[in-house]
Write a protein that binds this DNA or RNA. Structure first.
Lengths: 170, 170
DNA sequence: TTGGAATGTCAACAATGCTGACATAAACCG
DNA sequence: CGGTTTATGTCAGCATTGTTGACATTCCAA
């Protein structure tokens, strides 16, 4: 049921010669999957008057506790004004804590508070469940392939950021 | 080079037991890949004073020429006001043509004009190239797995829309 | 003929990008 | 020490793209 929708009438090896039609299907799959992937967190966030931008900030602060504002800016790829608007509300609402750097007092290190971590867990769980379910449906080889393609599709500098994040939390 | 970044020190079979950390990495990979994936079209569109919404409309009209406004609304999942704002400029600029339905004269059937098709090709090519390159890097099994996971991650109703699109253009 | 469907449009608002300008504090360098 | 750069925060304004609500037109269908 999970197969047969993509690339009608072609087995695995014919994927070596991808038609534009098949590539278009891949593009759409990416679009629809991303939508499905963000739908549930969006619903949770809406009730709290937050948006996707808040989610991203929370996610990456959780991923790298104590990260600086500049680090976060680099990873998210937005302007400081845009990020600050989001951070301000998260701090005001007590989800994020900002501590002055010890070695460099200009830096602000960002941490999730307890309730910040609670929301993060709530949001992550919904996405992890979806991903876990997808993984369970298709098996480990498909998962490995999925990740390889995703990584190959990233921009080079983004790929480096990911590698750094993964190294730190390894 | 394309592997070893995800899930340090675990081969394929250990993906059966996914830790939260590994799932988080998958979530991030999705986020970064989607960004990389839309970056190049965004650059092209910006020069033309269009946005991602225009891209989506063009993409799906190209995918299903003659589709109705209601069809497009269902696939894109936005309000008619939002879609109409985009369609209006595309029609005004001569990229999209709107024809009154023959059987049901209330319906408007949407088509790309020649220059609409040119822009579509331009946008698609940049994404197809990226996807083709990713596919080339990782091989056909990875590609099959990629698509399976993406499809498993979609919402049920979105998955149905995809199936319809793919059936029509098969 | 009447109700509902398909479409278009106006107005207002919200989230989240952006640019430009400016302020403060701390670090750094000569 | 003094000047420059860095890290951060903030204000104002604007664009895109999503939303609701209201209303008009045209046409199909019972």
């Amino acid at each position: 049921m999970a197969d047969g929708k993509f690339g009608q009438g072609c087995g695995g090896e014919s994927l070596l010669y991808l038609t534009d039609e098949q590539l278009s299907q891949g593009i759409e799959a990416m679009y629809f999957a991303y939508r499905g992937f963000t739908a549930e967190p969006d619903r949770i966030l809406e009730r709290l008057d937050y948006g996707r931008a808040h989610h991203r900030a929370i996610h990456f602060i959780n991923r790298s506790p104590g990260t600086t504002v500049n680090n976060l800016l680099a990873i998210l790829g937005v302007t400081k004004q845009s990020l600050n608007r989001v951070l301000r509300t998260l701090i005001k609402d007590g989800l994020v804590e900002r501590r002055i750097g010890m070695s460099d007092k200009r830096e602000r290190h960002l941490f999730l508070t307890d309730i910040g971590e609670q929301l993060e867990a709530h949001l992550s769980n919904s996405q992890r469940n979806r991903m876990r379910a997808a993984y369970r449906d298709v098996g480990p080889e498909a998962v490995a392939g999925f990740r390889q393609v995703l990584e190959a599709m990233m921009d080079d500098n983004l790929r480096k950021s990911v590698a750094q994040l993964n190294d730190k939390s390894a």
